[in-house]
């Protein structure tokens, strides 16, 4: 077991495409929960419609990739409206129940037999990233066959291209969030998080603001789904299980909800920890230190271990890594 190799690989996953995609989806969730106080437990549903927007447009209808992105984003708007119209006037918990159910229903519908002509059922859709790779070649940015970085901490050219675009989108969405939150619009939205009746009594249309936040956060989630389709080149419905949403929540709370950079820090640390604990456990196992564990046990133990770390974090640093403790304490009162 080479600890430096493990550290290098964990660092790779902290800045890799998956961390970027999760950061993007968590930025959307931060808009929902961190700023507007909307309890969305179905962010994976937005990722799913985004990914399948790309998948169905590109693989089934052979449309350009950008059209696929637009279709995915349009689906997210529709989904947000469908979720929001009946629930946003009600108490916060109705939205959370509805979102968790809707995301799971979406997954089941997309994998169902009757949807197969469009979604190819459980097998999913393939060959989604050809055009994306061509953009790289057309721009001449990264050599697909080359390695970038040093030693074990390096990426292939196609990963570099993907990371550039995805982290670029992360930066763009973080900037967008920053601009919105530091405007009077953000003030109203944060006020709604604190007490929507108070904001209503000052003449603000609370429902409209909640809907705007829900749509915007959903769009960012769908964008993450689009990038996931592009990254993997293939998508299948069972990648969009509720567990993805819970990873996103962990990322958000880990980094700090209600902070522009919270989801980004959270995603990087989360994926670092996930890889680090996994590699260390397997390394120890392969050297015979853990004779009582066999193959599949490592995954379970590793998740439990990360879970325990997160519990410790919530206990000792409830505001997240970069959260504002002052705000958090007031909230507890």
């Amino acid at each position: 077991m080479d600890i430096f190799l493990i550290l290098a690989e964990s660092a790779r996953s902290a800045v890799g495409p998956v961390a970027a995609i999760y950061a993007l989806a968590a930025i959307g969730l931060n808009m929902h929960f961190g700023y507007a106080g909307l309890l969305n437990f179905g962010q994976v549903g937005f990722m799913l419609v985004g990914a399948y927007g790309v998948g169905i447009s590109v693989a089934v209808f052979e449309l350009p990739l950008l059209v696929g992105f637009l279709v995915g984003l349009a689906c997210a708007v529709v989904l947000a409206l469908l979720l929001g119209v009946p629930t946003l006037r009600l108490r916060a918990d109705y939205l959370s129940i509805t979102t968790i159910a809707a995301a799971e229903v979406l997954r089941l519908v997309y994998r169902a037999g009757f949807a197969e002509p469009l979604t190819n059922g459980v097998y999913g859709l393939q060959n989604l990233s050809t055009e994306f790779r061509e953009w790289n070649l057309a721009l001449g940015l990264f050599d697909p066959a080359g390695r970038y970085g040093f030693g074990s901490f390096s990426f292939s050219g196609s990963h570099m291209w993907l990371m550039t675009v995805t982290w670029g989108l992360v930066a763009l969405m973080a900037a967008l969030t920053w601009a919105l939150i530091h405007s009077p619009w953000g003030r109203v939205v944060k006020g709604i998080r604190e007490d929507e009746d108070a904001v209503r009594s000052l003449g603000k249309n609370v429902f409209a603001y909640k809907m705007q936040a829900l749509v915007l956060g959903g769009l960012i989630g769908a964008l993450a789904g689009c990038m996931m389709a592009v990254h993997q080149g293939a998508i299948a419905p069972d990648q969009f299980k509720p567990q993805v949403t819970f990873f996103l929540w962990v990322i958000l709370l880990l980094g700090g909800a209600g902070r522009v950079l919270g989801p980004i820090v959270g995603s990087m640390v989360f994926w670092f920890l996930m890889n680090f604990t996994d590699k260390v456990l397997r390394g120890l196992g392969s050297e015979g230190y853990l004779p009582f564990l066999s193959g599949p046990d490592f995954g379970a133990i590793q998740l439990a271990f990360v879970g325990a770390l997160l519990v410790l974090l919530i206990v000792f640093r409830p505001q997240g890594l970069i959260g504002d403790r002052k705000e958090m304490l007031i909230n507890v009162k």
């Binding site: 003030r187 944060k190 604190e194 007490d195 009746d197 108070a198 009594s201 007031i330």
Partner: peptide, 10 residues
């Protein structure tokens, strides 16, 4: 409001 609604985290 009867129960004061200061927006506490602002």
């Amino acid at each position: 409001f009867q129960l004061t609604k200061a927006l506490t985290r602002m």
